[in-house]
């Protein structure tokens, strides 16, 4: 792609096409298999029978960043882990999104120390921050639905 993206004015055709493409993108957000701390346990519970992330078509946790659309940063990002998180984000193909799950990854949480990154938005652009320590699966779903709303407003063909 890249030939037709962000090249057209707003009109009935481009808005309709954009709306449809955004629907496909928001309907199959595949997260990366990737957990850092206790929030990851809640993320795994979200995939289980009680909460079932599959209802949104998002149960396809891809192990490789090449096939993932969404990075859920679930847990404390230590300074040792930060370069790896950044590298994984860079390896994902566009379009890609990031959810910062829990207080630790959003702002360092209960660890204002020399070893912990004070907020993952210092290294990757965060789309949705889910509060909680750790957030329950319902809270994660609320964040995912807000991300879907955000994707629906994106511009694909339009400038």
């Amino acid at each position: 792609m890249g030939l037709i993206e962000h090249k057209f004015e707003d009109n009935i055709l481009t808005t309709t096409v954009d709306g449809f493409l955004n629907w496909t993108r928001k309907s199959s957000i595949w997260p990366m298999t990737f957990g850092l701390a206790c929030c990851a346990i809640e993320m795994i519970a979200a995939g289980g029978p009680r909460f079932d992330i599959a209802r949104f078509g998002m149960e396809v946790f891809r192990a490789t960043p090449r096939q993932a659309d969404l990075m859920i940063v679930s847990g404390t990002v230590t300074l040792k882990m930060a370069p790896i998180v950044k590298r994984l984000y860079d390896q994902m193909p566009e379009p890609k999104w990031v959810i910062s799950m829990g207080s630790c990854s959003t702002c360092g949480g209960p660890y204002p120390t020399y070893a912990v990154l004070q907020g993952v938005e210092r290294i990757v652009p965060v789309d949705v921050a889910v509060p909680g320590c750790p957030p329950r699966p319902e809270a994660l779903f609320y964040g995912l639905m807000r991300l879907q709303d955000k994707i629906q407003e994106m511009k694909v063909l339009r400038k």
């Binding site: 792609m1 493409l21 629907w23 496909t24 078509g57 090449r66 193909p93 566009e94």
Partner: peptide
């Protein structure tokens, strides 16, 4: 349908 079209519109990496 959503999965297929999304994969088609992903970056050609």
């Amino acid at each position: 349908i959503a999965d297929g079209l999304k994969l088609l519109m992903k970056e050609d990496l």
